[in-house]
Write a protein that binds this DNA or RNA. Structure first.
Lengths: 189, 189
DNA sequence: TAGCACATGTAATAAGTTACATGATTTT
DNA sequence: AAAATCATGTAACTTATTACATGTGCTA
C-alpha cells in the first residue's frame, strides 16, 4: 500500500472529492484555500495525476473549451475509498524546521539587536497572517455559507489563527526579555 | 555566497561556536537540544562538514582517544563571521506542511469519528511534548545555570510551549465543535 | 559473547522546487 | 502589441532520509 512519506496524491484526491477539475485548477485551489498548511508545485502535481490514473484512483477526460485544451480529472470509487482510508490513519507529526528558532538558539553569537530584529520581523509576519486568516474566514462564510465542509474548513483557519496568536504573544514576551537584558539595538527602539 | 535554501551548514557552525566537537557529537547535541525545531541526519552532517573545511569555515583534527579515532572540528574566524552574518539575515518563513490539517480540511469525506480521533491523538501528542518542554526547561536551569546562552535557549523552549498550548486549546475547541455536530463516534466517547 | 554506544562515511532513494519549453486566450 | 493568465508538462537540481558498510570499545 501507500509507502510514500508524503500525501501529495491524497491532497489531490481530496480536491477531486469536491468535484472534477484539472491539475491547473488544483494548484489554484490550494493557493486559495490550503496554502497556509499545504501546497504542491506543478512539478509534483502533474506526475502524481498520471500515476493516479495508472492506479485507477482517477479518470481523465480531455476537454477543449473555446479551443483551449484541458484535462479534467474525476475521482473513481477506488480513489474515494483510498481517500477515506487515509483520513482514518493517524496523521504523522511533521518534521519541524524553524529557522527563526535556530537563530534565536544561537543568539549569543549574534550582534547586538540582531535577535530582537528577528523577533520584530516574526511578529509582523504573524500579524499579516492573522489578517489573511480573518479575511479567509469571512470569505468562506460569504461564499460557502451552506457548504457541508464549511465547518472543517473553518477549523483549519482557526488552527492558523491560534498558532499565529500564540507566536505573536511569544514575540512580545521575548522582545520584552531582550529589552530587559539590553539586547535591543538603539536603532530599533 | 550562501545560495542554499537551508541552513544545515549554519546549524553546524552554531554548534561549533559552543566549542570544538565531532560530527557524531553534533548529532547528539541536536537530538538533546534543538530536536523540536531543528535536526540533521548523518547523511547531511558528514558531507556538510567536508564542505565547511574546504571553504575554510572550520578545521579538522584527527584525534584518537583510547584507540577510537574521531575527527574534531573547530570554528575558524571565517566560520564565526559567517555565522554572525547569517544571524543578522531575516529568517525565511518555513514551508508548512501539516498533514493533520489536510485531513481536517477534507473531514467531510471521512468516516464518522475519524476526524475527532485525529484531534484526540494530536491533543495527546501536544501533552507529551509539553512535558518534554517542561523537563527541558528544568534541566537547562540545573545544568547550565550560568551559561551566557541560557536565556536564548529558554526562549526556544518557551516558543515550543506556547505553540503546544495553543494547539491543545484548538484541539479542545475543535473536539467540542465536532461533538456538538454529532461527529464523534460512540466508541470514542 | 552478544549487544549497544561510539564513530565515520557512502549509496540509493525519495521528495520537492525552479526553470524551461510550448502554446492558446484574454486583458491592458 | 505586450503582458498576464490559462494550461500542460519535463529536466535539472537541491534537499533529505534511510539503509548499508565498516570498525572499535565497553558493558551485561
Amino acid at each position: 500500500m501507500s509507502l510514500e512519506k508524503t500525501s501529495t496524491v491524497e491532497s489531490l484526491l481530496g480536491l477531486l472529492s469536491q468535484g472534477p477539475m484539472s491539475g491547473y485548477e488544483m494548484r489554484q485551489m490550494m493557493e486559495r484555500s490550503t496554502t497556509s498548511f499545504w501546497s504542491e508545485s506543478f512539478g509534483q502535481i502533474y506526475p502524481a495525476l498520471r500515476r493516479m490514473v495508472e492506479d485507477g484512483l482517477a479518470t481523465v477526460e480531455e476537454q477543449s473549451k473555446d479551443g483551449r485544451a484541458k484535462k479534467v480529472y474525476r475521482l473513481t470509487d477506488a480513489g474515494e475509498r483510498r481517500l477515506r482510508r487515509w483520513l482514518g490513519v493517524e496523521a504523522r507529526p511533521q518534521v519541524r524546521r524553524n529557522e527563526l528558532l535556530l537563530k534565536v538558539y544561537f543568539g549569543d553569537r549574534a550582534e547586538r539587536g540582531a535577535i530582537a530584529a528577528q523577533v520584530v520581523a516574526e511578529r509582523e509576519r504573524c500579524e499579516d497572517e492573522m489578517h489573511r486568516f480573518e479575511a479567509a474566514l469571512l470569505r468562506m462564510e460569504m461564499e460557502h455559507a451552506r457548504h457541508p465542509a464549511l465547518p472543517y474548513w473553518k477549523m483549519t483557519v482557526r488552527y492558523g489563527m491560534a498558532e499565529a496568536k500564540a507566536v505573536m504573544e511569544w514575540c512580545d514576551e521575548t522582545f520584552e526579555e531582550l529589552e530587559k537584558r539590553g539586547l535591543v539595538s538603539r536603532a530599533r527602539m
